[in-house]
């Protein structure tokens, strides 16, 4: 039984289709990422699971039970909010124990459990501080402990790392992943950061305009995008237009190729002019104009670098050119029920 399932779920605000006819199954124990640009409907989907929004169409089930009529406080899910939403008038311990207090647990018991949850997020001994005395990363952990102490069956995380600096973010990504493995709770994670989604999640759903464009493992999404939007949004793949692909392979669909898979060669199927170079450390990023299409290649440092304005030829291994045959269905629902 899937932990969360969306059956043709829509949430329209007047004429705005924030979420439009989404079909999705999230398996129990899965680390699931909802990835998309802002306004693509991913956060609304999360709020539909939490119960802050009601669907205008379709059916949402949590562990098989329909939740359309359940208010947020009757659902076995907890949320880590983007701004953490810690209660400013309570200290850290009482913040974490809030759910237990509402559930009617005794003071000693709930304080002990709150302390244990704080230990779990490595904040043991911080119980009597006020949220205002903590750093951003520490508040984030308190928010996590406050949600997890209630032993939810699904944990929802709304861009929880967005407010942290890069180093802290990478550290928290590791910790969240470890925590999820340890607890075995289903995590549903909303982010607009493709790197974050790919590095943490078991499966990723890519959202655009209120629809799911593609669902799959990080490798699927990265190497085998089904439509140009996914190729472009997830790690800036090169998208070759249909006409070009037709000339190169005879297929009539666009294709994607990763920048690190493009190579320079004396002879090759595609002629291009170098339009820019930038040094990235491990590699050099080279931009090309190939018969009117902008392409990017990442060249290792041991390869001879071209100069701006050079006319070169590009080549690649045939299996690296990923044909996006699904794109005649672009904009339609392509995230069929998979894996759950």
């Amino acid at each position: 039984m899937p932990a969360v399932s969306f059956d043709h779920v829509s949430r329209h605000f007047g004429a705005v289709k924030a979420v439009d006819d989404v079909i999705l199954d999230i398996a129990e124990g899965e680390f699931f990422a909802m990835l998309g640009p802002s306004g693509s409907g991913k956060t609304t989907c999360l709020r539909l699971i939490a119960g802050f929004e009601r669907p205008t169409g379709g059916d949402i089930r949590i562990f098989g039970a329909p939740v359309a009529d359940l208010p947020p406080y009757k659902r076995q899910v907890n949320t880590v909010f983007q701004d953490y939403a810690l209660f400013p008038h309570l200290n850290v311990r009482d913040n974490v124990a809030y759910g237990l207090m509402i559930a009617g647990r005794g003071k000693r018991e709930r304080h002990a459990e709150a302390e244990a949850a704080l230990e779990m997020v490595r904040l043991g001994g911080y119980g009597s501080r006020k949220p205002s005395e903590l750093s951003g990363g520490q508040r984030q952990r308190v928010a996590l402990a406050r949600a997890l102490v209630n032993k939810p069956r699904v944990l929802l995380l709304d861009e929880p790392l967005g407010a942290l600096d890069l180093k802290l973010r990478e550290q928290m990504q590791e910790e969240l992943k470890t925590l999820q493995r340890q607890l075995g709770i289903t995590f549903v994670f909303v982010t607009h950061d493709q790197g974050e989604a790919l590095s943490m999640a078991d499966r990723v759903a890519v959202f655009n305009d209120g629809k799911i464009i593609q669902v799959g493992s990080p490798e699927d999404i990265y190497f085998r995008p089904e439509v140009p939007f996914v190729a472009d949004f997830v790690g800036s793949s090169n998208v070759l237009p249909e006409a070009l692909v037709a000339r190169l392979t005879g297929e009539t669909c666009p294709a994607a190729i990763r920048p690190e898979r493009l190579r320079l060669a004396p002879e090759g199927p595609l002629k291009a002019r170098v339009t820019g170079l930038s040094f990235l450390g491990l590699s050099t990023r080279v931009s090309f104009d190939a018969e009117g299409t902008r392409l990017t290649a990442l060249l290792p440092q041991d390869v001879a670098r071209p100069r701006e304005g050079d006319e070169v030829a590009l080549t690649w291994a045939p299996e690296d050119l990923h044909l996006m045959r699904a794109s005649e269905r672009a904009g339609q629902q392509v995230g069929q029920r998979v894996g759950a």
Partner: peptide, 14 residues
């Protein structure tokens, strides 16, 4: 913050 109310309801409070 408006999300305080949502957080409270998320944690089981009516």
């Amino acid at each position: 913050s408006g999300s305080l109310i949502e957080a409270s309801m998320d944690l089981g409070a009516n």
